[in-house]
Simulated assay, not measured.
Amino acid sequence: MTNLHDFAATGIDGQEIDLSSYDGSVVLVVNTASKCGFTPQYQGLQELHDTYGERGFTVLGFPCDQFAHQEPGTDDEIAAFCERNYGVSFPMFAKVEVNGKGAHPLYRWLKDQKGGLIGGAIKWNFTKFLIGRDGTVLDRYAPTTEPAKISGDIEQALA
């Protein structure tokens, strides 16, 4: 069976990261963008990371420019924006595609595990996937779902 731990992705600093390093952690995977109406969710994502991090939780941010060109920057610009404006300390990755033929393998798998309102496709920036300690997808949340509303599910996954 495939799970989160079977994938690797390029960190925003260009280093390859084996996602098996999150084995035993609860993870929230989010496709992000710096120029989106949902961009302020970075603050809520950071708050989740701060609140639950010591208990084995992390957020993984995957910038994506597939929705109305709302993530036009380079990886360095994205990293600087996130740190400067939202104090983001959770892991960020290099820009990826989440839909179409060029979709990152992780996102192809995530969409297969939990479809959304428009089938498997990602609808917009800040679609969220909650992953359990065993690397399986527990739930999928719409871009409109504020991070704080996921805290109960995170608590349950950490229990």
Rank of each mutant, 00 (worst) to 15 (best):
Y22W: 10
S20A: 15
L110Y: 10
Y141M: 12
E155Y: 03
I12W: 01
Q113S: 13
A148N: 13
F62N: 03
D134L: 05
G37E: 06
G73I: 09
A79E: 10
G132Y: 03
K101V: 14
Q113F: 11
D50Q: 15
M92C: 01
R140K: 09
A103W: 04
G37M: 06
E97P: 05
A68F: 10
Y52H: 09
T10Y: 00
Q46P: 07
K35I: 03
S151K: 14
F57P: 07
Q15T: 07
T144A: 15
F93H: 02
V29Y: 03
Y52G: 02
G14F: 02
G116H: 11
D65Y: 10
G53V: 04
Q46A: 05
V30R: 09
N99C: 10
E71N: 05
P105D: 08
K95R: 14
G115H: 14
F81I: 05
V96S: 02
L60S: 08
L19P: 01
L106E: 01
V98F: 13
T2I: 06
K114M: 11
Q43K: 15
H104A: 10
A68M: 13
F90C: 12
G115A: 15
E83V: 14
F126G: 06
D139K: 15
N99L: 10
K95P: 07
G135T: 12
F57Q: 09
